[in-house]
Amino acid sequence: MRTVNLHSKEEIEHFLRKNQALRVYELGDLDDFFWEDTEWYGLKEDGELQQVLLLYCGSDLPVLIGQANGNVAQLSELLEATRPRLPSRFYSHLSPEVVTVLQEDYQIEYHGAYYKMSLQNQALLGKYDKAHLVKLSWQNLEEIEQLYIESYPQNGFDPRMLDTGFYYGIWNNNKLVSIGGVHVYSPQYKVAAIGNITTHPEYRGRGFSLGVCSHICRELLKTVDTIGLNVKADNPAALAAYRKLGFEIAGEYAEYTLELK
């Protein structure tokens, strides 16, 4: 086996499509909107790609994404070979079995177990769609950021994602009380990942987040085929809500912050 830098979108896509429900984020990052901020590493055998690691550098803290997908030894080998090229500090979404490869060089802070979910039953979306949703834009940035401060301070919101046109909210008495949007959207690769979903604590229990998610998904399905999301494994309320919308678990991973010792 040999480790290589990957530069061919077609080659990477061919590999990721083998399990696209698990690989929504990586597929989306092939899009021109994200591509220049990505570095790709692969493990090959007889010229055939066996494993892939993605380093996304478009955020304040780079993010490393790697899914073993049944072959821990191969992903561990790729991670070991890639280790000298990794940043001194980064966030990661990794299969938990492989992170020990980095523990000699990095301090590792564990942020919990997560599920990747994929929309499998689109018919359920219509039950929760809300007619009074409003599309959000840069003009609403102050209200958006205030809602996240009050309701979801650990969010992954990037204001430039408003340019996708897939951020929606619910207002009450001129106050933004519920919001949802996308982390990744690629009409070229026909995938999207929804996220940054929250409702103000004073307005929870009214189905607002269900309505926001349902509407976003129905709008996305006009241009994409696969919709995914990430959710904490110890959040049963969120898991139940996503299942109501037709999402099912596609895989597991864990999140970490790593910093050179």
Score class of each variant (00 low, 15 high):
residue 182 V to W: 02
residue 224 V to P: 05
residue 61 L to T: 14
residue 120 Q to T: 11
residue 188 Q to E: 15
residue 231 V to P: 05
residue 91 Y to S: 13
residue 157 F to K: 02
residue 181 G to F: 03
residue 106 Y to E: 08
residue 66 G to D: 11
residue 124 L to I: 00
residue 112 G to L: 11
residue 120 Q to A: 10
residue 157 F to N: 00
residue 154 Q to T: 13
residue 29 D to N: 14
residue 118 S to Q: 01
residue 209 S to I: 15
residue 36 E to K: 10
residue 118 S to H: 04
residue 71 N to P: 06
residue 40 W to T: 00
residue 68 A to M: 06
residue 5 N to V: 11
residue 71 N to D: 15
residue 57 C to I: 02
residue 186 S to I: 08
residue 193 A to Q: 12
residue 255 E to C: 15
residue 103 Q to P: 03
residue 103 Q to C: 09
residue 68 A to V: 03
residue 162 L to Y: 01
residue 24 V to C: 06
residue 50 Q to W: 01
residue 82 T to G: 06
residue 18 K to P: 09
residue 225 D to A: 05
residue 240 A to H: 12
residue 71 N to L: 07
residue 75 L to A: 07
residue 55 L to S: 01
residue 200 H to P: 03
residue 155 N to L: 03
residue 146 Q to V: 12
residue 21 A to G: 14
residue 144 I to S: 06
residue 203 Y to P: 01
residue 10 E to A: 13
residue 40 W to H: 02
residue 258 L to I: 07
residue 254 A to M: 10
residue 28 G to A: 03
residue 257 T to E: 13
residue 115 Y to G: 03
residue 64 L to R: 05
residue 198 T to R: 01
residue 221 L to Y: 07
residue 43 L to F: 02
residue 60 D to G: 15
residue 49 L to D: 01
residue 244 K to N: 15
residue 4 V to E: 15
residue 221 L to P: 06
residue 260 L to S: 09
residue 102 L to P: 10
residue 209 S to F: 15
residue 157 F to A: 05
residue 166 F to A: 02
residue 52 V to Q: 00
residue 152 Y to Q: 01
residue 123 A to P: 01
residue 30 L to F: 04
residue 221 L to A: 09
residue 164 T to I: 02
residue 167 Y to P: 04
residue 13 E to F: 15
residue 5 N to T: 11
residue 236 P to R: 04
residue 202 E to Q: 14
residue 120 Q to N: 11
residue 206 R to E: 14
residue 198 T to M: 01
residue 92 S to Y: 07
residue 21 A to N: 13
residue 258 L to M: 12
residue 192 A to E: 03
residue 239 L to R: 05
residue 65 I to P: 03
residue 153 P to W: 08
residue 18 K to G: 09
residue 45 E to H: 00
residue 32 D to M: 08
residue 100 T to L: 10
residue 135 K to G: 08
residue 249 I to E: 15
residue 252 E to L: 13
residue 213 C to V: 07
residue 172 N to I: 00
residue 39 E to K: 14
residue 159 P to F: 06
residue 180 G to P: 04
residue 75 L to D: 09
residue 223 T to R: 12
residue 138 W to R: 14
residue 68 A to S: 10
residue 170 I to L: 10
residue 146 Q to D: 13
residue 156 G to C: 02
residue 16 L to T: 12
residue 35 W to G: 00
residue 253 Y to S: 15
residue 26 E to Q: 13
residue 33 F to P: 05
residue 186 S to R: 05
residue 196 N to F: 06
residue 221 L to T: 08
residue 73 A to C: 08
residue 129 D to A: 14
residue 253 Y to H: 15
residue 163 D to R: 08
residue 219 E to R: 09
residue 164 T to K: 00
residue 160 R to E: 05
residue 75 L to Y: 03
residue 179 I to E: 10
residue 134 V to S: 05
residue 103 Q to M: 12
residue 108 I to M: 11
residue 230 N to K: 00
residue 204 R to V: 06
residue 64 L to E: 10
residue 91 Y to H: 11
residue 245 L to S: 09
residue 235 N to E: 10
residue 245 L to R: 06
residue 62 P to A: 12
residue 98 V to H: 05
residue 174 N to D: 15
residue 18 K to E: 09
residue 73 A to P: 04
residue 189 Y to K: 09
residue 188 Q to Y: 12
residue 33 F to K: 09
residue 117 M to P: 01
residue 240 A to W: 05
residue 212 V to L: 03
residue 86 L to S: 07
residue 240 A to N: 08
residue 137 S to C: 09
residue 229 L to I: 11
residue 18 K to Y: 07
residue 95 S to H: 04
